[in-house]
Design a protein around this nucleic acid. Sequence first.
DNA 1: GTCTATACGGCGATAGAC
DNA 2: GTCTATCGCCGTATAGAC
Lengths: 200, 200
Amino acid sequence: MEKQSTEEKIKAAARKLFIEKGFAATKTRDIAEEADINIALMNYYFKSKEKLFDAILEEAFQYFPGKLISILEEEISIEEKVTKFVTTHSEMLKSNPLVPIFVLSELRNNPQKFVEKIGMHEILTDGVLVNQLREESAKGNIKKISPIHFLINMISLTVFPFIIQPALLTLENLNTDIFNNLIDERKQMIPEILMNQIRI
Amino acid sequence: MEKQSTEEKIKAAARKLFIEKGFAATKTRDIAEEADINIALMNYYFKSKEKLFDAILEEAFQYFPGKLISILEEEISIEEKVTKFVTTHSEMLKSNPLVPIFVLSELRNNPQKFVEKIGMHEILTDGVLVNQLREESAKGNIKKISPIHFLINMISLTVFPFIIQPALLTLENLNTDIFNNLIDERKQMIPEILMNQIRI
DNA sequence: GTCTATACGGCGATAGAC
DNA sequence: GTCTATCGCCGTATAGAC
């Protein structure tokens, strides 16, 4: 990676600063300085600060939710699926702890785009997991549950600790190692909670 | 309410616009116009746009932690307590849509202050609920559970839907009424989930 | 103490030279 | 493709009228 295109330099600088400081706190002049280019160049390659943000988010979304959503679509049992999803999700978040806050602020600014990007509507109506929940409860193998509640529960329990991580880390007896250990405990706990809820 | 003080006029206008468009999208000049005052007056009464935002949210936030924490300290059974906490918390969030935004941005900007304000350390070490969980599991009445996980689970499951509310409301078949109905369903579901986890 | 007019510096964005 | 110069908008600060 000796030579890096100007476009890539800008994206790399912006990605770093956006994750570090958030959208509003990141100035175009900071990005230009970090990328060692002129401010105007940023507008030449990307039309605006927001478009640049979108371009970066686009890439992150391909890697992040894409992998998670594909787990939801696998043809494995509900329990295996939940375990795999929560484990994968937790590991991703552990190595990118700032992503949730980053995504959530974006969710507020442009919820429509967010919903379309991850295909939320399709997941909730035609997804393999949703159909599994319907079929298994029809067969009497599990309790009946609204798919949207099941998904909200699974994601809430996984993501929320990362959202409040800055607060947790200010506690005397809680450092990053202990936090990560907490997350590892939850990788077992969350599937148990979810399966407990639907087990007959 | 025939006559309204200038200070109240500003707060009312700001509250309306902040809720409507969010913090960043609300311009000080918009607030001044809405309140029918000069821009500089806003800076006379409140020192800055952010201080004005804080002042408004302080009012909403006043009731919040105090009332919820007092529920944790009541001398009632764990199940009653969880039910009461989740119900109260949900109702508060339903009528205060600004609070989740406030808490999230506060958490990002000043986690220390947030932790101190709600007395998180005391809740986790000496709180009545924490002691109940310890005592009941020592007696063999419930399964052993780490109090921090129990609290994270309870709050995650309650708060998270509100955090992603903007996204949920863009779904075709989901409006505010259906969202509120979803929350009401969760007021029963969440205590069940939590008690399922610790019931022997 | 209240309020108005106006100015200042920082921001995102653009036009145009090279 | 890249840079300089500059524009228009925003949050904020200040001087001074009443």
